[in-house]
């Protein structure tokens, strides 16, 4: 087990470095000279000699005068030690800038994750058990519609229904502007703002997850050991929820993990739409403002998220199914 984990970790680290090199090279292709942006370019015409000095100084400070491999090494070392660079847009270290959005994104995505789990797993199981019934067919049709519609269309429909026609939820933002009160009131206000984005995210993911759970369950329910379990006279509930569900977990975990990764990267659209101050919104404004240190950090965050997701997926396999061979 330990050997397996170690092997996976080494592999993850390897992939991380490969992607970080790709990202770094891409970043170097970005039009615009960061050193030029740091200094006052109007001096160029007034005093060319002084300007050249300042420009070289800025390059030196940013480490741009060194060859690319050395620049990469210093960047990745900083990255790994938690120094993500300096945001040119907000004029503060990236690390301080992204902490609040990170919490917002985590809150929103965790809330929708819990909701999706709570709804789609029971729904998938029930539809698999009552395969081809009226309820099953209805859910099937609804789920095709759900996973075919893009998130922003669902969002527009939800805004129309729950913010315009029935003004239950606020249309955008994280908090009411200038809110004061006890921490409980602030918390409730945030939940109120969070409701609509969470509903939209949940609606747009639920269809796909339900279909996967259903498919996995149907495969398992046709197995011989299920027939055996029934023949033994076990109660149907035990057969479905203990014998069958446990065996259907592997495909479910696979899809859940990749879904969680897409959930985080896909929340760019939802956060942008609802002006939810999360990581997706930070990435969006950073790209718009050409704040590339932030972009790079965000990108590495998403990569780490994906890799950690894959690692956790592999490890959970061993936990839920002892048959999984660790050697491969």
């Amino acid at each position: 087990m330990l050997k397996y984990i170690l092997k996976r970790l080494v592999y993850v680290a390897f992939v991380f470095f490969i992607i970080s090199i790709i990202m770094f090279v891409l970043y170097k292709f970005v039009p615009g000279d960061p050193a030029l942006m740091m200094i006052d370019s109007s001096k160029q015409n007034v005093d060319p000699v002084r300007f050249e000095q300042m420009y070289q100084a800025a390059r030196e400070r940013l480490g741009l005068d060194k060859p690319l491999p050395i620049q990469y090494i210093s960047w990745i070392t900083n990255m790994l030690t938690g120094d993500f660079g300096y945001s040119s847009q907000y004029r503060m270290p990236v690390k301080d800038m992204v902490s609040a959005p990170l919490i917002n994104t985590l809150q929103m995505n965790l809330a929708s994750m819990v909701l999706v789990f709570l709804i789609s797993i029971p729904l998938g199981i029930v539809t698999a058990v009552r395969k081809n019934g009226i309820f099953d067919n209805t859910v099937q049709v609804a789920s095709v519609v759900g996973y075919s519609l893009p998130g922003f269309v669902i969002a527009l429909l939800c805004i129309f229904a729950f913010a315009v026609k029935l003004p239950i939820f606020p249309i955008s933002g994280v908090n009411t502007a200038g809110i004061t009160g006890t921490s409980m009131e602030i918390f409730l206000d945030k939940m109120h703002h969070m409701a609509l984005p969470v509903i939209v995210t949940t609606l747009s993911s639920i269809g796909m997850i339900t279909r996967y759970v259903r498919g996995a369950m149907i495969d398992v329910l046709e197995m011989d050991y299920i027939r055996t379990a029934r023949a033994k006279g076990l109660r149907e509930k035990v057969v479905v929820y203990v014998h069958a569900f446990r065996n259907a977990l592997i495909p479910i975990i696979t899809i859940m993990t990749s879904w969680i990764v897409t959930l985080f990267s896909g929340s760019v659209v939802i956060e942008r739409l609802f002006l939810w101050n999360g990581l997706g919104n930070v990435l969006y404004t950073a790209l718009m403002q050409r704040d590339f240190m932030v972009v790079l950090t965000m990108q590495m965050f998403y990569v780490v998220l994906a890799l950690v997701g894959n690692l956790i997926m592999d490890l959970t396999y061993c936990l839920v199914d002892p048959r999984v061979k660790l050697e491969n």
């Binding site: 896909g266 760019v268 990569v303 994906a306």
Partner: peptide
């Protein structure tokens, strides 16, 4: 696997 590990939407935006 590496290509798949790159989160799609943010990367496409950057590219």
């Amino acid at each position: 696997e590496i290509v798949n590990a790159i989160p799609f939407l943010p990367f496409a935006m950057i590219l």
